[in-house]
């Protein structure tokens, strides 16, 4: 079984029923993607499959041949953060932080498809992701902040540091 993860070709030879979540975490050692419910109910395991947000805990790895997966490790780096990652820091979004990779993956799929989402658009795109710490109001603000920054070509990462 071959597919790409964050632009790199990866292969997995085990049980094709194995959920993608456990393959990326334990075989590929990309631990940013989290296990939350195992039933696609909480969104902690969200990754992109060919650009769309999916729940990796209920996606058998056998379904992924030649497809492209992106994880939290693939959307930005400390040097070149995704605008959402800069906004997340600017607004101190995370609390326990466990759900945040999934939140960021849902949000980044949203902005890729809809660069200027309304509150309703955000509610629709993000209501599959649970946060027990209650960071939702900041997540919503951060999505707007990142969206505005992208529209104005402002580098939030620079703004944050300043």
């Amino acid at each position: 079984m071959k597919f790409t993860v964050n632009g790199k070709e990866m292969s997995f030879t085990g049980d094709e029923e194995t959920p993608l979540l456990w393959v990326i975490r334990d075989e590929f050692d990309l631990k940013g993607t989290k296990f939350g419910c195992g039933k696609g109910l909480c969104g902690a395991c969200t990754v992109h499959l060919n650009g769309s947000a999916i729940r990796s805990c209920v996606t058998p790895v056998g379904a992924l041949a030649n497809l492209s997966v992106t994880t939290i490790e693939g959307i930005g780096s400390a040097e070149h953060p995704h605008p959402l990652q800069a906004a997340w820091q600017a607004l101190n979004v995370p609390q326990c932080g466990y759900c945040q990779p999934g939140q960021l993956m849902s949000a980044s799929a949203l902005l890729a498809a809809n660069p200027s989402p309304t509150d309703d658009d955000i509610n629709t795109a993000m209501s599959g992701n649970i946060c027990r710490c209650g960071t939702y109001p900041r997540i919503k603000k951060a999505i707007h902040l990142a969206s505005d920054a992208m529209a104005k070509s402002v580098d939030l990462a620079v703004e944050v540091k300043a």
């Binding site: 631990k31 994880t71 939290i72 820091q89 101190n92 995370p94 990779p101």
Partner: peptide, 14 residues
């Protein structure tokens, strides 16, 4: 918030 960075890049070790 000092842990915001690690938790934004999937780097915090739980």
């Amino acid at each position: 918030r000092l842990d915001a960075h690690a938790k934004t890049f999937g780097k915090a070790v739980f």
